[in-house]
Simulated assay, not measured.
Amino acid sequence: MLRSPAVLAALPFAAVFLLAPSTAHAQAPTPLTEAIEALTVAEESREGYDRSLFPHWTDADRNGCNTRAEVLLEEAVTAPEVGERCRLSGGEWYSYYDDRSFTEARALDIDHMVPLAEAWDSGASQWSTQRRQAYANDLDEPVALVAVSASSNRSKADKDPSQWLPPAADTHCRYVTEWTTVKTRWGLTVDEAEREALNTVAQDCPDAVVETTPAP
């Protein structure tokens, strides 16, 4: 469904991504610890990786707003104004990685919850370019892309949870749950150190569950 920036601006942002029909079915909620154990363990290899192999940011619905802008619109605490060519002005965002608020979109990066390089290491090297593009612009899974401070995103870089966790310690359960959600959705593997780190955090998250729809 095509949506103009003016229509987007008028919609409740929680509803923006409910407009496109989906034929996939969400899996039943799974306790975080069980979801982690269900991930396939495999060695990682970055051989051949290049960021350009994951085309982004696209404008899949051709409404004038690319993936970055769509995420900013979806995650705004206070909705920005949407101008010509989807230029955003005003608004407010909350970066949960480091417990900071921002009033300028340019201060935020859109983080791939599981970084592109990590996805490559974990199975995406075997995908078609079309599937890698779908991964890099995944607006159907709300936790796949997240608006965060540029500084926290660049600190994270392409690290997995054995190497990096958000500086705001009380967000670790959320972060590990979202990481596991994306790995589950896309059938990505984990290495031993990564799984150990996920399990360590998950021990303190008894109520956390993973619920997602398998990627097409």
Rank of each mutant, 00 (worst) to 15 (best):
M1N: 09
M1H: 13
R3G: 07
S4R: 12
S4Q: 06
P5V: 11
V7T: 13
L11G: 01
L11C: 03
A14R: 14
A15Q: 14
V16M: 15
A20C: 11
T23M: 06
H25C: 02
A26V: 10
A26T: 13
Q27K: 12
L32T: 11
I36W: 09
A42D: 00
E43C: 00
E47L: 00
E47K: 03
G48A: 07
G48L: 08
G48K: 06
G48P: 08
D50H: 14
R51P: 14
R51L: 10
F54C: 09
P55H: 04
W57G: 02
T58F: 02
T58S: 12
D59Q: 04
D59V: 05
D61N: 12
R62C: 05
G64H: 06
C65M: 04
N66D: 15
T67H: 03
T67I: 10
R68T: 11
A69I: 06
A69P: 00
E70S: 15
L72E: 02
L72Q: 07
L72C: 04
L72R: 03
L72K: 03
E74H: 14
E74D: 13
A79S: 11
P80N: 11
G83H: 05
C86P: 10
G90N: 12
G91Y: 14
Y94Q: 04
S95F: 03
Y97A: 05
D98Q: 07
S101Q: 08
R106D: 15
R106T: 13
A107T: 05
L108F: 10
I110H: 08
D111V: 01
D111Y: 01
M113V: 05
M113T: 15
V114W: 03
V114A: 03
A117L: 06
E118N: 02
A119D: 00
W120A: 00
D121A: 01
D121P: 01
S122Q: 03
S122C: 01
A124E: 02
Q126N: 14
S128T: 15
S128D: 10
Q130C: 01
R131M: 10
R132M: 00
Q133V: 06
A134Y: 01
A134L: 14
Y135S: 06
Y135C: 08
D140I: 08
L145M: 03
L145N: 03
V146Y: 12
V148G: 06
S149T: 06
A150W: 04
S151G: 09
N153D: 15
A157E: 13
D160Y: 00
D160A: 04
P161Y: 02
S162F: 00
S162N: 07
L165S: 02
L165Q: 01
P166C: 05
P167H: 06
A168T: 09
A169C: 06
T171V: 06
T171M: 05
C173G: 07
R174E: 15
R174I: 11
T180V: 15
T181E: 10
G187A: 00
G187D: 06
L188E: 00
E192Y: 03
A193G: 00
R195Y: 01
R195P: 02
A197D: 10
A197G: 06
L198K: 08
D204V: 04
D204N: 15
C205I: 08
P206Y: 00
D207C: 05
V209H: 13
V210M: 02
T213S: 14
P216L: 10
